[in-house]
């Protein structure tokens, strides 16, 4: 009898580190640090994204530091380059993040090209990715849903490729499932859908397409009950992964009776 694989037997490996959770969670837009911590707990996430920003001078000296709530000893902290519109500021952000996190190498590279859509600037992303890989960073790269570009980033040495499902914070879901599937089929590094998920079914669809994980923030933080949504996302990602591994039935244009036709007495 075939055994059912559970998620513990089906880890994802990113930059040689093994993770049992395939949900990567952002820490922006929550009401407060307590809600952030509770959402992370409910999500089961092991990789948590943070942004690098100027410290507030002379304001709220007693405010807890985010890294006191999300301990780098317990979680893999994934600093992002959000808000960077050129390669140089993205590289500078990563260098500061590495210092901040005592030599930490794993980063999420995003170089944005347009304020309205937050779509990536691919030429600038390539320049930054090459420089960061040369600087010995492990680069998880935010890109569009272009299979050719995804392959280029993999060949360049990015440790994970993270195509958007829809614009950042839009909650529109997987707008181009065929491209996402093509990216997954061609890949030999983890493919993580980053951005665009709106609710649990979107995350499940990403996983059913064969993605290795989903990175999200707004879908959880902007839910009416973020902690409950974090729990829903955890289950959706596990369910979607199991459905992908199980292999779905073929689609048919017409019905196929589930009960036998033989043996009817009427």
């Amino acid at each position: 009898m075939a055994t059912v694989k559970n998620t513990l037997e089906d880890p994802v490996v990113i930059a040689e580190k093994v993770y049992t959770s395939r949900l990567l969670l952002g820490t922006g837009k929550y009401k407060d640090m307590e809600e952030t911590g509770l959402a992370i707990g409910a999500s089961g996430s092991q990789i948590i994204t943070v942004a690098i920003r100027r410290s507030n001078i002379g304001q709220n000296p007693d405010e807890p530091n985010l890294l006191d709530v999300i301990s780098p000893e317990k979680y893999t902290i994934l600093p992002n380059t959000a808000g960077c519109y050129d390669a140089d500021s993205a590289i500078r952000t990563c260098l500061l993040a590495r210092e901040l996190l005592d030599g930490h190498k794993l980063i999420k590279l995003e170089v944005l090209g347009d304020e309205k859509t937050l779509f990536p600037d691919i030429p600038a992303t390539i320049i930054a990715a090459e420089a960061l890989i040369k600087e010995d960073f492990d680069v998880m790269v935010y890109t569009n849903d272009d299979p050719v570009m995804a392959k280029r980033f993999e060949e360049m040495g990015c440790v994970a490729v993270m195509p958007l499902a829809a614009p950042i914070g839009s909650g529109l879901g997987i707008r181009n499932p065929y491209n996402i599937r093509t990216i997954v089929e061609n890949a030999s590094v983890p493919i993580i859908v980053d951005a665009g998920v709106g609710t649990a079914s979107d995350a499940a669809i990403a996983m059913e397409l064969g993605c290795d994980g989903v990175l999200m923030n707004t879908a959880v933080a902007e839910a009416k009950n973020p902690v409950l949504m974090a729990s829903a996302m955890k289950k959706a990602i596990e369910a979607g992964r199991e459905a992908f591994l199980a292999g779905r039935m073929p689609r048919r244009a017409y019905a196929s009776a589930s009960s036998p036709i033989d043996g009817t007495f009427f």
Partner: peptide, 10 residues
């Protein structure tokens, strides 16, 4: 001088 820290982000 720039002083930076980790804050919430996605």
């Amino acid at each position: 001088v720039e002083i930076v820290e980790a804050i919430g982000g996605g």
